[in-house]
Design a binder for these strands. Structure first.
Length: 283
DNA sequence: AAGACGGGCAACCGCGGAGGT
DNA sequence: TACCTCCGCGGTTGCCCGTCT
């Protein structure tokens, strides 16, 4: 079918923004906000396409942007989140207040990637190059789960501020099946967390159940008594489960059981929770 | 001093998802 | 259900500027 261009190319300016253009865009947004990026350039008197205006605002003109050198803590956060999330710069940016995804992406590509490579660490797998293949499956699995959890958290904050207090992620604790009515008011994405919690804490019994992902971005999760894992929609060593060995599962179960705040997790101690859960600090 | 080179970063491009009709 | 529009994201490009020769 083809896609129509976001704007008529003819007559529209490209390239670096001038201070005058910045001023026009700033003045317009300060006065009217940015409702429709497509319509904004005309109203603001700019000979730019809407996408260009949006990019300029988000990456440069927005008043809450923090510019300048990345701190050591920010670098560590980027590296750790990249290990979990991959090149999902917008998701990473949500954990770095006032930094833009573009800035983080550039910093990764120009600085951090090289640094890891020089240290003998594969910037894709975040493992020493010689051992990259050995435990890639486990890391991939953990990363996928954490990715799903972060997405759920982000949606929770976005959509359910009235239901759940800010900065406080309440992982669903409910009786099986009968609780469904009370859960219908919660974001569906929390079902993944509920199921995860259930299978490891013994509250629920899953017998090779398949939990349907509530969103298109969450993969399927297969759960049963002895193992768990994402289904073949994401790369795994084999279809079905990523963790085949019962002792690995038992170890993870133990770590989870020992996690004090799993049922009602305060995000302010998320780092400690993650450390407890996976044995390394990734947040 | 000047040309070559490479790094850093702002901006562009194309794709995919969400929502509306 | 199909199509369309808009927005947001990630990959890529290309310009600017500092350093090297």
């Amino acid at each position: 079918m083809g896609r129509s261009p976001c704007c008529e190319k003819v007559g529209l300016k490209k390239g670096p923004w001038t201070p005058e253009e910045d001023q026009k865009l700033l003045a317009y947004i300060e006065q009217h906000g940015h409702g429709s990026w497509r319509a904004l350039p005309l109203k603001a008197g700019l000979e730019r396409c809407g996408k260009s205006c949006r990019l300029r605002w988000i990456n440069y003109l927005r008043p809450d942007i923090k510019r300048g050198k990345f701190s050591l803590q920010e670098e560590q956060t980027i590296i750790q989140l990249h290990a979990l999330l991959g090149n999902r710069w917008s998701a990473i940016a949500t954990h770095l207040p006032n930094r833009t995804d573009n800035e983080i992406k550039n910093y990764w590509n120009t600085h951090l990637k090289k640094r890891l490579t020089n240290m003998g660490i594969d910037p894709v797998t975040h493992k020493p190059k010689t051992h990259a293949l050995a435990s890639a499956a486990n890391l991939s699995h953990m990363a996928q789960w954490e990715s799903a959890r972060l997405e759920a958290e982000a949606r929770l904050v976005r959509h359910s501020k009235q239901v759940v207090p800010q900065n406080h992620l309440a992982v669903a604790v409910a009786a099986p099946s009968s609780s469904s009515s009370s859960l219908t008011t919660r974001p569906q994405c929390l079902d993944v967390l509920k199921a995860w919690q259930g299978v490891v804490s013994g509250l629920f019994t899953f017998n090779a159940d398949t939990l349907q992902s509530p969103t298109s971005t969450l993969p399927m999760l297969n759960l049963n008594d002895n193992n768990f894992g994402w289904n073949s929609s994401i790369p795994c060593e084999s279809s079905g489960t990523c963790l085949e060995k019962p002792n690995q599962m038992a170890e993870l179960k133990e770590r989870l059981d020992n996690s004090m705040e799993l049922h009602e997790m305060d995000c302010s101690s998320e780092s400690a929770w993650f450390q407890e859960l996976f044995g390394f600090n990734a947040l």
